[in-house]
Design a protein around this nucleic acid. Structure first.
Length: 191
DNA sequence: CATGGGATTGACT
DNA sequence: GTCAATCCCATGC
């Protein structure tokens, strides 16, 4: 496996990082997947948790880039983000879907499912499949959780569209999807 | 201290 | 298509 992405990769505008993460590999233990769907969040817009400023919850978002922001959603699911932008600026990329590439049987055990396309096709599904929980909040992304560059070559064809499941700043086209992937959380809406 | 609202998912009509 | 599950934490009294 290649070296993890350097901290400088994340110390950039969060929308750029969200697009560039498509095709990269997320690993945790014996499980790994290729990123096919991301969303960018930034303190300047109200859908971002960091919009409310520095609180105990948002401390990690405002911290050093290249770390995991993991939080509980709807009391049930853990959602995985990569903290971006310089320290002091609250921003992160939500990892919304993966194409499973390693440890698929272990993912099936954790998810209680058989169909490969259902294992990591959603932000709550992929954390369950990879065994990622809240204790990994603030963990560096070159540790137990690691992010790795995509293979050399042209970037995967992708498209920007509106983010999913939010009620504010819904118009921003900050969701990025790999074109043609069978592992998205939801289809790409018609343009 | 009480309340309300989610960056979701799976089961069900 | 509808809806409940369930926990963290921001907000307001």
């Amino acid at each position: 496996m290649t070296d993890p992405l350097p901290v400088a990769f994340y110390d950039r505008p969060v929308v750029d990082v969200a697009q560039d993460l498509l095709g990269c590999v997320v690993r945790h233990g014996a499980t790994a997947g290729r990123i096919v769907e991301t969303e960018a969040y930034h303190q300047s817009e109200p859908a971002c948790h960091a919009y409310v400023g520095l609180t105990p919850r948002t401390r990690v978002l405002f911290g050093t880039p290249g770390r995991a922001y993991v939080y509980r959603s709807y009391g049930i699911h853990a959602l995985l983000n990569a903290v971006c932008e310089p320290e002091g600026e609250g921003a992160a990329v939500l990892i919304r879907a993966l194409e499973p590439i390693e440890g698929v049987d272990l993912m099936r055990e954790r998810r209680g499912l058989v169909r490969k396309r259902d294992l990591c096709s959603g932000p709550g599904k992929l954390t369950q499949a990879l065994g990622i929980e809240l204790e990994l909040n603030d963990a560096p992304l070159d540790g137990p959780i690691s992010f790795h560059p995509r293979p050399p070559g042209d970037p995967p064809p992708s498209v920007a569209c509106e983010r999913i499941g939010i009620t504010r700043a819904v118009e921003l086209p900050w969701r990025f999807c790999a074109l043609g992937s069978e592992h998205l959380s939801r289809p790409i809406p018609p343009s």
